[in-house]
Simulated assay, not measured.
Amino acid sequence: MSGTLREEHDALLLDLDGTVYAGQDVVPGALAALTGSAQRLLYVTNNASRTPSAVAAHLTELGLPTTAADVVTSAQSAARLLGERLEPRAAVLVVGAPALVEEISAVGLVPVRGSEPTPAAVVQGHSPDTGWTALAEATVAIRAGAVWVATNTDLTLPSARGLLPGNGSLVAAVRCATGQEPLVAGKPARPLMEDALDRSGATAPLVVGDRLDTDIAGARAVGARSLLVLTGVSTPMELLRAPEEQRPDLVAADLGGLDRAAQELAIDHVDGWSVHVDGSTLVLACDDGAADPVAGLRAACRPAWDDPGWTVLRAEGAGAESALRSWGIDPG
């Protein structure tokens, strides 16, 4: 297929959780969209709980043949940040999974789980096994002057069962206990995106993800074009309320959007839809009951962003009412 979005780019920097898979299950449409892609595919994840080889094995099992070199994790970026700041063989208290321990060792630092030897730094990443004792050790070390790096600060983590507490929720506990702010490796901070761009060697990358506050903000932080897919965390209402630093260039229902023309996915006027702000009401109008609700969402973004004083949504016409229902909003 010619003239598609993917063909305008030489690399796709893809989020994983909520974009390609949710827990152990592939997101509908992801296999068809990514299989056989001519672009370099790099999977860029804030999740520091699995090694790149484990992530690659999971993707391969799902039907997307992948190597460890195709996976860029926040654990790798966190380890790089510490390697640049500490002396070789410095002790680093690891609050996180064994995968994070491996990355700390790989940059010539010594991972520890307790107070001996005295940690020069603390690195905190997601692990479902993290408990109070580990957070207490981190608090003591940070208050004593240890460098603190968080792999990411995502408050939630998508799963097949819904949203679960993410690393950011536990980082918040340590922040409250120490009064300190960590250096952040993962999206939306620059280090992970910079590492992914460096590894891709791309001149025209496209960042693809499901979260405005991480994937899209991360793309904007490094000046990359971005595509939001509505298969994970961020909702249509959150998109309409997005601050400037979280606004995507393109929006699609899922990864199938890669095979559509870029102009069809752009935040702009969309034929058949009329959107305006009337006082405190964002009015979405479309009479075609079979109209694409995501097209309506794209049409609504610019008016919603340009006049953020609205507080309620109103639908006019069968198409607009159907769109609001698909966004989980009662059209009244």
Results as ranks from 00 to 15, higher is better:
Arg6Trp: 04
Arg6Asp: 07
His9Val: 08
Asp10Leu: 10
Ala11Leu: 07
Leu13Thr: 03
Thr19Tyr: 05
Ala22Lys: 02
Asp25Ala: 15
Asp25Gln: 15
Pro28Met: 06
Ala30Glu: 01
Gly36Tyr: 07
Gln39Asp: 14
Asn47Val: 03
Ala48Asn: 00
Pro52Ser: 03
Pro52Gly: 01
Ser53Ile: 02
Ser53Asp: 15
Ala56Leu: 03
Ala56Cys: 10
Ala69His: 14
Thr73Pro: 03
Leu82Asn: 01
Leu86Asn: 11
Glu87Phe: 06
Arg89His: 10
Arg89Gln: 13
Arg89Pro: 00
Gly96Arg: 00
Ala99Thr: 12
Val101His: 15
Ser115Trp: 12
Pro117His: 11
Pro117Asp: 13
Thr118Gly: 13
Ala120Asp: 14
Ala120Gln: 15
Val122Ser: 09
Val122Leu: 10
Val123Ala: 08
Gly125Val: 09
Pro128Phe: 14
Trp132Gly: 06
Ala134Gly: 06
Ala141Glu: 12
Ala146Glu: 02
Val147Ile: 15
Trp148Ser: 10
Leu155Glu: 02
Ser159Tyr: 06
Arg161Gln: 13
Gly166Asn: 07
Gly166Asp: 07
Gly168Tyr: 10
Arg175Ile: 04
Ala177Trp: 02
Gln180Lys: 12
Gly186Met: 04
Met193Asn: 03
Leu206Asp: 00
Gly209His: 02
Ile216Val: 14
Ala219Ser: 09
Ala219Asp: 00
Ala221Leu: 08
Met237Lys: 11
Leu240Asn: 05
Pro243Arg: 12
Glu245Asn: 14
Glu245Met: 09
Pro248Ile: 05
Ala253Ile: 00
Gly257Thr: 05
Asp259Leu: 04
Gln263Cys: 09
Gln263Phe: 09
Leu265Gly: 02
Ile267Trp: 04
Asp268Asn: 07
Val270Gly: 02
Val270Gln: 13
Val283Glu: 10
Asp287Glu: 15
Gly289Met: 08
Pro293Asn: 06
Ala295Asn: 02
Ala300Ser: 14
Ala300Tyr: 01
Pro303Met: 08
Gly309Cys: 08
Trp310Tyr: 14
Gly317Asp: 13
Gly319Arg: 00
Leu324Gly: 02
Ser326Phe: 03
Pro331Val: 11
